[in-house]
């Protein structure tokens, strides 16, 4: 296991002894069995691992969508596991941008409006047009999700996630439903945000090839970390192929 840090950076997330148990008694499932991990600010981390290895649970807890059974997650020095439901809502609102496998766009709103949805409640957001321009969709702003391709929809989702200039961008299988070409376009968008705004990004994927674009690769197995490695030979998303 390599544990060398290329650049000294402040820690965005500090995770200690994180456990998550679903169910009770005989049906208990240990999704996380004590995970310790620090994610430095501004890094792009790729989380790998088979289904059920705990990576999604881990990401959901980081994003304030789920609460752990034990352990702590400190974000910018604040313990988010101590927050109640309203506190978590506020945390998500102020700090977190999400991108999911199935886009989760609002079908009744156009691309621009889907982005405005978030900018309306954010403190210092990008303009919706700017955000869409960043992901290369300036000509599709007035289309409804049903009129966009999967890749375009996912890029709208990325634009929506970055428009509020979040501190962290959490992506769960963002390319899972896409072919490689559109998938790469989405990864480029994520990479761009990470690079331009210094947003801490964590991307879950099944696709080991994507790990090449990461600053850091974290591999989950059976609810625990099996490997954390720093990628010294990071490449651009455009160079990835699968």
């Amino acid at each position: 296991m390599q544990n060398v840090q290329s650049v000294e950076r402040a820690t965005a997330f500090s995770v200690q002894g994180l456990t998550k148990i679903y169910g009770t008694g005989e049906t208990q499932v240990h999704a996380l069995r004590g995970v310790d991990l620090d994610l430095p600010q501004g890094e792009l981390t790729v989380l790998l691992g088979p289904s059920g290895s705990g990576k999604s649970t881990f990401l959901n807890i980081l994003g304030g969508l789920d609460s752990p059974t034990g352990g702590t997650v400190t974000f910018q020095g604040r313990d988010i596991t101590a927050l109640d439901s309203n506190g978590l809502t506020q945390y998500r609102r102020d700090h977190v941008g999400f991108v999911f496998q199935f886009y989760n766009l609002i079908p009744s709103l156009t691309a621009r409006e889907n982005v405005s949805l978030v900018t309306e409640i954010a403190t210092a957001p990008l303009r919706p047009d700017e955000a869409l321009e960043l992901v290369g969709l300036s000509d599709r702003m007035d289309h409804f999700p049903a009129q966009l391709s999967g890749g375009e929809q996912q890029r709208v989702a990325v634009a929506r996630a970055i428009a509020k200039k979040p501190d962290v961008l959490l992506c769960d299988e963002p390319t899972g439903a896409l072919d490689s070409k559109t998938g790469i376009a989405v990864l480029e968008a994520i990479e761009l945000v990470n690079r331009e705004f210094g947003t801490t990004a964590a991307v879950i994927t099944h696709n080991a090839a994507i790990a090449d674009i990461a600053d850091r690769v974290v591999i989950f197995a059976d609810g625990a970390l099996s490997e954390v490695r720093v990628n010294l030979t990071k490449i651009g998303a455009a160079e990835v192929s699968w």
Binding site: I106, P107, S108, L109, T110, E113, N114, S116, L117, E120, D142, F144, P145, A146, Q147
Partner: peptide, 28 residues
């Protein structure tokens, strides 16, 4: 198949810019 929405009459009156997105969701 996903439901197709239209910008419809709301757009003609420029309401889309004035209403909040949640309100737009209701009306659409």
């Amino acid at each position: 198949a996903p439901t197709i929405y239209r910008r419809g009459v709301l757009n003609m009156f420029g309401l889309t810019e004035r209403l909040s997105q949640p309100t737009l969701m209701i009306l659409r």
